Computed example of a mutant assay.
Amino acid sequence: MSTQTLIEIIKAELKSRGLSYADVARELALSESAVKRMFAPGGEMPLSRVDELCRVLQTDFAALTQRLGERRQLRRELTLAQERAVLADPKLLLTAICCLSHWSFEQIVAGYRISEAEATRYLAELDRLGIIELKPLNRYKLQVAKTFRWRPQGPVMNFFRESVMGDFFAGGFDGEGEVLSLVHGQLSHAMARELAERLERVAEDFARQHVLDQKLPDAEKRRYTMVVGMRSWLFEAFRHLQRSDLTRTASSRS
Rank of each mutant, 00 (worst) to 15 (best):
Met1Val: 06
Thr3Arg: 10
Glu8Leu: 13
Ile10Glu: 04
Lys11Leu: 15
Glu13Gly: 08
Leu14Ile: 04
Arg17Cys: 02
Gly18Phe: 04
Leu19Trp: 04
Leu19Asp: 03
Asp23Cys: 06
Leu28Ala: 06
Ala29Asp: 13
Ala29Gly: 04
Lys36Leu: 00
Met38Val: 01
Phe39Ala: 10
Gly42Cys: 01
Gly43Glu: 05
Gly43Thr: 04
Pro46Cys: 00
Ser48Gln: 10
Ser48Leu: 10
Glu52Met: 07
Leu53Thr: 03
Arg55Leu: 09
Val56Phe: 03
Val56Glu: 07
Asp60Tyr: 02
Ala63Val: 14
Ala63Glu: 14
Leu68Arg: 12
Glu77Pro: 06
Leu78Cys: 05
Thr79Val: 07
Thr79Asn: 05
Leu80Asn: 01
Leu80Tyr: 05
Gln82Ile: 01
Gln82Gly: 03
Arg84Ser: 11
Ala85Asn: 01
Ala85Glu: 10
Val86Tyr: 04
Val86Arg: 01
Pro90Ala: 06
Lys91Pro: 10
Lys91Phe: 09
Lys91Cys: 06
Leu93Tyr: 09
Leu93Ile: 06
Leu94Cys: 02
Ile97Tyr: 00
Cys98Leu: 04
Cys99Arg: 00
Cys99Ala: 13
Leu100His: 05
Trp103Asn: 02
Glu106Val: 14
Glu106Gln: 15
Gln107Glu: 15
Gln107Phe: 08
Val109Ile: 15
Ala110His: 12
Arg113Leu: 11
Ile114His: 07
Ser115Gly: 11
Glu116Gly: 12
Glu118Leu: 08
Leu123Lys: 07
Ala124Thr: 14
Gly130Pro: 01
Gly130Asn: 07
Leu134Gly: 00
Tyr140Ile: 06
Lys141His: 14
Gln143Ala: 12
Lys146Ile: 02
Thr147Gly: 08
Phe148Lys: 03
Trp150Arg: 03
Arg151Ala: 00
Pro155Gly: 00
Pro155Cys: 02
Asn158Asp: 08
Phe159Gly: 00
Phe160Ile: 10
Arg161Tyr: 05
Glu162Asn: 11
Met165His: 10
Phe169Ala: 02
Gly171Phe: 04
Gly171His: 10
Phe173Ser: 03
Gly175Trp: 01
Glu176Gln: 13
Gly177Pro: 08
Glu178Gly: 04
Glu178Ala: 12
Ser181Arg: 15
Leu182Lys: 05
Val183Leu: 11
His184Lys: 07
Leu187Gly: 02
His189Ser: 10
Met191Tyr: 01
Met191Trp: 03
Ala192Asn: 10
Arg193Asp: 15
Arg193Cys: 07
Glu194Gly: 07
Glu197Ala: 15
Glu197Asn: 13
Arg198Met: 11
Glu200Pro: 02
Val202Thr: 12
Ala203Trp: 06
Glu204Cys: 11
Asp205Gln: 15
Asp205Gly: 13
Phe206Pro: 08
Ala207Arg: 15
Arg208Gly: 04
Gln209Ser: 08
His210Gln: 03
Val211Leu: 15
Leu216Cys: 02
Asp218Ala: 15
Asp218Phe: 06
Ala219Glu: 14
Arg223Leu: 13
Tyr224Val: 07
Val227Glu: 01
Val228Gln: 10
Gly229Ala: 11
Met230Ser: 07
Met230Asn: 05
Met230Val: 11
Arg231His: 13
Trp233Ser: 09
Leu234Gly: 09
Leu234Thr: 14
Phe235Ala: 11
Ala237Pro: 01
Phe238His: 09
Arg239His: 09
His240Lys: 12
Leu241Gly: 00
Gln242Asn: 03
Ser244Gly: 06
Ser244Pro: 00
Asp245Gln: 08
Asp245Asn: 09
Ser251Trp: 09
Ser251Met: 13
Ser252Arg: 14
Ser254Ala: 12
Ser254Gln: 12
